[in-house]
């Protein structure tokens, strides 16, 4: 492990640990005081870009999401706000607990999946495709309402088997180059893969604006990038495998503040 986090972070980690006894038992790999957001691995310029809402390009998606929140959609003619009211109140802390267990289908769903279920059931609207601008905008707007709040995903015991599947996928070697996620993000974080510093794998800022993409994208897009990188066959968008993997990572990131919409290189 290369270097220790500064004292402030360490203290934050210890403070987080005090309230997170249950979650810590689920997170044996990266000790809480060693957990670092991808934010810390970025250049100062990128950090400033994330922190200044007037220059953070992710805020364009948030603004679009805000407009969609109040737009009539589907055969119902209902807006999101008709049921949920002011997102600043009703959506506060929501993104921080996703993926959640969706009892009707006995499986976990991510925030994008939840938005699409709401569209179908409550708005009589067609689901939005994964990575579509509208779905990313809504997810970014909802995520923004939890910015700075600690991640709380993984509370529900019914999620445990899915979290375990996600962990198994995280640790499974894949592709022609035979790498697991853990090979890089647990065992070699802080080191350089060509020009890129390998971060730990805490999905604290999704959907986020990636400079390489010149766009906001979801965590699933990030997963696909890594799988293609190790020459593995990526799963299709919306696959249960990606939701399980997100669940594992978000559970492991419990207590870390949500940064949506984050900037990443």
């Amino acid at each position: 492990m290369s270097g220790l986090p500064n004292r402030k972070l360490r203290n934050a980690g210890i403070a987080g640990a005090l309230g997170l006894g249950a979650a810590l038992a689920l997170a044996p790999e990266a000790l809480p005081q060693e957990r670092r957001s991808g934010f810390e691995f970025m250049s100062r310029e990128s950090q400033v870009l994330q922190q200044d809402d007037t220059s953070n390009p992710g805020m364009l998606w948030v603004a679009e999401g805000e407009a969609l929140w109040s737009a009539r959609t589907g055969a119902s003619g209902r807006t999101c706000a008709d049921c949920h009211g002011d997102a600043a109140v009703s959506m506060k802390g929501v993104a921080a607990r996703y993926p959640v267990y969706f009892a009707e289908q006995s499986r976990p769903i991510d925030l994008q999946g939840r938005i699409n279920i709401c569209r179908e059931v409550n708005q009589n609207a067609t689901p939005l495709p994964y990575e579509s601008r509208e779905l990313l905008a809504l997810a970014a707007f909802i995520g923004k309402q939890s910015r700075g709040m600690p991640i709380t995903a993984g509370d529900d015991q019914r999620l445990e088997p899915f979290r375990a599947l996600g962990q198994e996928l995280y640790e499974r070697r894949q592709g022609q180059l035979n790498f697991s996620c853990a090979n890089c993000h647990d065992d070699h974080w802080g080191r350089k893969l060509a020009s890129s510093v390998i971060p730990q794998s805490h999905p604290t800022g999704y959907p986020l604006y990636r400079l390489e993409w010149q766009s906001v994208g979801s965590l699933q897009r990030r997963f696909r990038n890594c799988m293609v990188g190790v020459r593995a066959e990526p799963y299709p968008f919306g696959s249960p495998e990606y939701v399980n993997l997100e669940l594992f990572l978000m559970t492991r990131a419990r207590g870390m503040p949500l940064e949506t919409p984050a900037i990443r290189p």
Partner: peptide
Amino acid sequence: TIMPPYYSREGLIRVGRAWQGK
């Protein structure tokens, strides 16, 4: 090891379509 196997197909999982069998 994290060194990829450069001339083997054994034990590889979910190899991408473009690379299968190679």
